[in-house]
């Protein structure tokens, strides 16, 4: 199906992008386009104006700042997943980025686009939730910094106001989080997650701290803070110790209870809920085995 007609404009600065949005009708910001263009072909979105932000100075870079590692809105996922600093210090983000579509898609698709699309199944969202990422935006009311943990408000919905542009994502360097993204899909490559579970542990912190994030099992990607608190409390003496298996079982039960999956073509609600329990237990157990405290 051909794309509907629209006007294409390329912004060179953030200010110009905001001006273009204000002056023109029914705008959409455009980076990789890998979500927007298919949605337009399906008639789900019909912007009259596409504002390309890839030429906006500075948005195509990953840079080190005092606040943490800053990833610009135009940086493609393929650059993020191969970036040596991301791989060393934020390995969970590299791991989650690598399962979005296939490599050629990730040569175009961006991290910021993935979270602005706000799919409940957004793979990079769970990494950003665990990493306490911050979303920097600029809009008519000025600049804002929004925690990723508050950013998602529903399927396809975020805290963003009309015309507000996400310029970058900040990854604070509080700790190095390690773990694994356990993801079930109908086929291994190139499919949206049916269930995604990220279980992570902070390296070097004493006592160790745990984080759990879920995708595709609720209207938004979410953290399971009660289960995290349980693991933090019981794991203080060293994971893998006496009673740890029972603790993991309780954490998995909390995660099961805290999700609210739906039934769709990828799986039933019951299956998804059961798999949340299985994967949280599996992820937490794997952490205990992989780490020497």
């Amino acid at each position: 199906m051909p794309l509907p007609h629209f006007e294409y404009v390329a912004a060179r600065t953030v200010g110009e992008a905001l001006d273009l949005w204000r002056e023109r009708p029914a705008c959409a910001y455009f980076a990789g386009g890998t979500d927007l263009l298919p949605q337009m072909r399906l008639g789900r979105r019909a912007p009259a104006t596409i504002i390309d932000i890839k030429g906006v100075g500075g948005l195509d870079r990953i840079r080190e700042t005092e606040a943490g590692l800053v990833i610009g809105a135009a940086v493609p996922l393929a650059v993020i997943e191969t970036d040596p600093v991301v791989r060393a210090d934020f390995p969970l983000l590299a791991e989650c980025a690598r399962v979005v579509g296939a490599r050629p898609l990730r040569n175009r698709a961006t991290l910021v686009g993935n979270i602005c699309n706000a799919s409940p199944a957004a793979d990079t969202a769970v990494a950003l939730l665990v990493l306490d990422g911050l979303v920097r935006t600029v809009g008519a009311d000025g600049a804002r910094e929004l925690p990723v943990n508050e950013f998602f408000t529903g399927p396809g919905r975020t805290l963003l106001r009309p015309g507000e542009l996400v310029t970058e994502v900040v990854l604070p360097r509080a700790a190095v989080w390690r773990g694994s993204y356990l993801r079930l899909s109908r086929r291994r490559g190139m499919d949206l997650a049916t269930v995604g579970v990220l279980v992570a542990c902070s390296n070097g912190a004493s006592p160790p701290r745990y984080r759990i994030a879920l995708s595709a099992v609720a209207p938004v990607p979410l953290r399971v803070r009660d289960a995290e608190a349980l693991l933090d409390a019981e794991g203080a003496g060293g994971a893998g110790g006496h009673g740890w298996a029972a603790t993991i079982g309780r954490a998995a039960e909390i995660a099961r209870a805290s999700c609210s999956p739906i039934t769709d073509m990828r799986g039933t609600a019951e299956y998804r809920r059961d798999m949340v329990g299985v994967l949280v237990a599996r992820g937490a157990a794997a952490l205990a085995q992989a780490w020497v405290w």
Binding site: M1, Y8, A10, G32, G33, T34, L37, P38, R41, I50, D52, K54, A78, G101, A102, R103, P104, L105, N107, R108, M190
Partner: peptide
């Protein structure tokens, strides 16, 4: 036409890209 099948693959500045998901103006 949605980046699933790869039949439209070309190299853009040396990187494989789904040309059905890139605008000609880009």
């Amino acid at each position: 036409n949605e980046g699933e099948c790869g039949a439209c693959m070309v190299l853009v500045d040396g990187r494989a890209v789904n040309s059905c998901l890139m605008l000609a103006v880009e």
